[in-house]
């Protein structure tokens, strides 16, 4: 992927998707992550992330392909941010929308050439209010760049 191709990704919108916080999945999740007891019906705040990534309108493999990479290239998490605006609730279905917000090419002494691609996902409740915003960046090694 050329630098021009990379920079043209900024502003690309993802297809909208949706995510339902199923009760049994919430139970299993909170058990697996060792959550403290939560108020009845209230989803663990990490559902801002799980709903965003699980409900976005493309798979991670499709996202990686969009930026000219694949899981086999070893993309890594860079940063993750969550903004919690409304409490999310178990049983609710949320719409997920968003897109690519940043793309930059860097060169590290040990890592060589790599790209950092950032994207933002908004988790929207049935009233149209944004319940949470998830921002993430992935680091893509570009061994052949």
């Amino acid at each position: 992927m050329t630098l021009d191709d990379l920079e043209r990704l900024v502003g690309v919108e993802f297809p909208a998707g949706e995510f339902t916080i199923e009760g049994y999945e919430h139970w299993l999740t909170t058990d697996a992550i060792g959550s403290p007891t939560l108020p009845a019906g209230v989803a663990h705040p990490m559902y801002a992330y799980y709903a965003a990534l699980g409900g976005m309108g493309l798979t991670l493999d499709e996202l990686f392909a969009m930026v000219g990479s694949s899981a086999a290239d070893g993309p890594m998490f860079g940063e993750a941010g969550l903004e919690f605006r409304e409490m999310m609730r178990v049983g609710e279905t949320y719409r997920v929308e968003g897109g690519i917000t940043g793309a930059a090419r860097k060169t590290g002494r040990r890592a060589g050439v790599f790209d950092i691609v950032s994207f933002e996902l908004r988790v929207v409740d049935s009233s149209g209010a944004v319940a949470a915003v998830s921002t993430n960046s992935f680091v893509f090694p570009r061994r052949a760049a």
Binding site: V42, P45, E79, G81, F84, M87
Partner: peptide, 13 residues
């Protein structure tokens, strides 16, 4: 004591 009080979190792995 209340998950609603958490407003934002940003982390680097």
């Amino acid at each position: 004591g209340d998950p609603a009080r958490i407003r934002a979190l940003k982390v680097r792995f």
